[in-house]
C-alpha cells in the first residue's frame, strides 16, 4: 500500500518583479515519479537546491503542484477539502528546533497540535504521554523547552508531530544543527518509531552515515530523482554520487580506497562492523 505517491509532479517557483510581472521561472521539481510504501524508512539525498525540501513540502501540502499529481494516503493534495486530513496523515519536522517549539512547557508544546484540532482533553493527555514516551522525554515533561539541548528539543518537536497520530513523518534535515550525540538521539528515535510503531519515515539529510539503515534511498538533482535503491546500491557508486555533489560515509570511503589498493573488499560497505568483519577474514 503506498502512502505517498507522485506522478509527473512538477513545481515552479515564479519570481516576479516590483510591478508583479513574471521575472523568471525556476523549475524546482521536474516531473517526479515517486511511490513510497507504508511503513518504509526512506532517505532523500541531494545537494542544496536540488529540490528535496520542495518535494517534502508537497507531502504535507505546504506547496501545491504546478503540474502533475501528489497523493498522500490516497488523497490528492490538490483537493482543498482534504487539506487538514492530509496534514494529520503526514507530519513535518524542520531543521531548527527553536522555530518549532511554541509553548513554555514541554507537555503543553506536545499537546498544542491535538488541542488545535479539537481532540477531547482527556485524550490529549493520553496522546502527550504516549508521544513523550516514544521519544524518551517523559522526564522533561514539566521542563521549559529552552533549557533543553538541541537533540532534546528536536525530540520534543518530533513528539509534537507524533501526538497528531500521523501515518508518516517527514523530517527535513532534523540533525543539521545538532552535536554528535544529539544527532544520534534523533536518528535512534525515528528508527524506533519506524520499527515499533510502523510510522513511515522520510528523512532528508546531508549526513550520509544517517541513511545506511534506510529501506530505500532517493537521490535528487535538478528537481529530478536521479538515483534510487538500497543504501548499499547507492553507496556502491561513489563516482556518480560525487557528480551529484554528494559523498559516502567515511567507512564506505575507506573500504573503497582499500579495494582500489588491491584488497578483496566488495563495493558499498556501509558500517564499521561490516568492514571490521571483512578485514578480519582477510588477515
Amino acid at each position: 500500500m503506498s502512502i505517498i505517491k507522485a506522478l509527473k509532479l512538477t513545481h515552479e517557483y515564479i519570481h516576479r518583479d516590483d510591478e508583479g510581472n513574471v521575472d523568471s521561472i525556476e523549475t524546482a521539481l521536474d516531473g517526479v515519479d515517486l511511490d513510497i510504501a507504508e511503513g518504509d524508512f526512506i532517505a532523500i539525498l541531494g545537494h542544496n537546491g536540488s529540490g528535496k525540501s520542495t518535494l517534502a513540502k508537497h507531502m504535507n501540502v505546504i506547496l501545491s503542484p504546478s503540474d502533475g499529481t501528489m497523493w498522500v494516503d490516497g488523497k490528492d493534495t490538490k483537493d482543498e477539502d482534504k487539506l487538514w486530513e492530509i496534514r494529520q496523515t503526514a507530519g513535518m519536522v524542520f531543521q531548527n528546533p527553536d522555530n518549532q517549539i511554541i509553548a513554555g512547557i514541554v507537555e503543553e508544546d506536545v499537546g498544542f497540535g491535538p488541542e488545535n484540532i479539537g481532540v477531547p482533553t482527556s485524550e490529549i493527555w493520553t496522546r502527550v504521554d504516549n508521544a513523550l514516551a516514544a521519544v524518551h522525554m517523559e522526564k522533561y515533561r514539566n521542563h521549559s523547552p529552552n533549557k533543553l539541548s538541541g537533540g532534546q528539543k528536536q525530540r520534543v518537536a518530533i513528539a509534537g508531530v507524533i501526538a497528531m497520530r500521523p501515518k508518516c513523518i517527514i523530517l527535513d534535515e532534523p540533525t543539521a544543527m545538532l552535536d554528535p550525540v544529539g544527532r544520534q538521539e534523533v536518528i535512534e528515535t525515528i528508527t524506533e518509531l519506524n520499527k515499533k510503531e510502523g510510522v513511515t519515515v522520510i528523512l532528508i539529510t546531508h549526513y550520509m552515515e544517517e541513511v545506511v539503515n534506510a529501506d530505500k534511498v532517493f537521490v535528487m538533482d535538478h528537481g529530478k530523482i536521479v538515483m534510487q535503491g538500497t543504501p548499499r546500491e547507492i553507496f556502491s557508486d561513489i563516482k556518480t554520487l560525487k557528480e551529484h555533489h554528494l559523498d559516502v560515509p567515511q567507512v564506505t570511503l575507506l573500504a573503497h580506497e582499500l579495494k582500489e589498493a588491491g584488497l578483496n573488499i566488495p563495493d558499498g560497505v556501509l558500517t564499521e562492523e561490516e568492514l571490521l568483519h571483512i578485514l578480519c577474514q582477510l588477515s
Binding site: H47, N48, Q95, A176, H206, M208, H245, D247
Partner: peptide, 10 residues
Amino acid sequence: TAGLDPQGRD
C-alpha cells in the same frame, strides 16, 4: 558548514 551539502562543505 552546518546545513551545507557535502560538496559545499568540502
